[in-house]
Amino acid sequence: MKNKPNQQIKSKTGIIDNDQAEQGMSIIVKTVTRLTVGVLFVYGINVALHGHIIPGGGFAGGAIIALSLLNLVLAFGKDAALEKLSQTWAIIFTTLGLLLFMVIGLFGSGNNSILESLFQDKGELLSLLMIGSIPLLNIAVCLQVGAGIFVIFIYLVSLKPEADKS
């Protein structure tokens, strides 16, 4: 099995094969990805946590976090990204984000209403944490979107077209 990828590196059309693309790209892409993936991850968390002060929000932050993992998949292959966040944990995070959103919405349901903002009148202007339910909802959206896009991408990568096999 180990000789198989080496034989397929240069096919007759000169196009990268599926097995070689699974292992990753060239060393330039790997080095740049190794430098930038942590910065991307932290920037996603920053955008999601400051979603109520600066432009951005939970969706954009979660998508940036998913992008850092997608970069790992593109540069190093699928297994390197699954070491950081396994498939089971990604599905758990997706479900947990949606459940957190629903629980926060249910806690706020006081006056015959559901999905109402909780402790609405206790917020301070321009503070990071004590500002009501919107930062918590941003964190929930960030969890759900980031893990959800990662799960979709992992499942799309593991799909193999049946026409190539025959």
Partner: peptide
């Protein structure tokens, strides 16, 4: 009403949640 300075976040996560 929401003490959130980003109006888009206030609308999408409070009024139109």
């Amino acid at each position: 009403q929401t003490t959130v300075s980003n109006a888009v976040a206030a609308i999408t996560l409070d009024y139109r949640i």
